[in-house]
């Protein structure tokens, strides 16, 4: 349905001599070109992942064999495991810390320096990641911290906090505190008010925040590549090392698999957050 609407609109934009004052000729064409630009590279990767030829750019025939070899790739599986561990733990830490902070900043009584606290929490968004990465690398080496997994978790938890914080804070701000006052007015004590009113209502925000930090952590390259070592290689860092070795059909298959997984993860989350709006 929406697709055909879309096409109609496109046709209107491209062809018709539109008298509508809000219509700008050419914008439709730019948009079509833009979406092609956005998706063609991805489609290229997916297409060539099915190429049976070892030389990537020369099409030989359709094959699943690179997927089989990708799934048997031990280095890849290790990297997936590291990434999942780091992302899960970092997300739990970041979401808890961010929820507590957002609750205090939106609902606490007599909170001082709200702006300052927000700035501090959003610090990781304000400076280039490479600066954060080398800074934390020096810190860890000064502390003599060796364990790669611990280093990754600490660094990821830190830069995930603002990503978890923003949706939760937005949710709390969008919700008038009338509701909590109404609960207290109806004899609910502060704890019950939190449990039965505040928490259920900000749950979509917490979910969105957790989702966002998980994806950000899974996707992180700069910090992970600088901090890792000590036997912990995350998925993006592993893929990067493969890319460095050169284009390969197996790499295409791995990329396609990862895109498929993110699509499967993101789409339901997107639908849930849309329904809860």
């Amino acid at each position: 349905m929406s697709h055909s609407n879309n096409q109609n609109a496109l046709m209107r934009f491209i062809t018709a001599k539109n008298k509508d004052v809000k219509h700008y000729p050419g914008f439709g064409l730019i948009s079509v070109a833009f979406f092609l630009f956005l998706y063609l590279p991805i489609l290229v990767v997916i297409t060539y992942s099915f190429n049976s030829n070892k030389i990537v750019s020369v099409w030989q025939g359709f094959s699943f064999k690179w997927y089989l070899s990708a799934l048997q790739n031990e280095g890849l599986m290790n990297a997936v495991q590291v990434s999942l561990t780091v992302a899960t733990i970092a997300t739990i830490i970041a979401t808890s810390v961010a929820t507590a902070a957002a609750l205090v900043l939106s609902r606490g009584k007599e909170v001082k320096h709200v702006k300052l606290s927000e700035t501090v929490i959003n610090l990781p968004l304000m400076l280039p990641e490479i600066v954060f990465a080398v800074a934390i690398l020096i810190l860890f080496s000064q502390l003599g911290l060796q364990d790669g997994l611990t280093k990754l978790i600490l660094a990821h938890a830190c830069f995930c906090i603002p990503f978890a914080f923003l949706p939760i804070r937005a949710r709390l701000q969008g919700m008038t505190n009338n509701l909590e006052q109404a609960a207290q007015d109806l004899y609910a004590n502060p704890w019950i008010t939190f449990k039965r009113i505040t928490l259920p209502l900000i749950l979509p925000g917490i979910f969105a925040g957790a989702m966002l930090s998980f994806v950000i952590s899974m996707d992180d390259f700069i910090t992970s590549s600088i901090v890792s070592g000590g036997g912990a290689t995350t998925l993006p860092v592993y893929i990067f090392s493969l890319v460095k070795q050169g284009v390969s059909p197996e790499l295409n298959a791995i990329s396609t698999l990862i895109m498929l997984v993110s699509l499967l993860l993101v789409t339901p989350a997107w639908m849930i957050s849309k329904r809860n709006k």
């Binding site: 008038t176 009338n178 006052q181 109404a182 009113i197 209502l201």
Partner: peptide
Amino acid sequence: FQNYALFP
């Protein structure tokens, strides 16, 4: 309350 504040 002014906007009723019904628990949604």
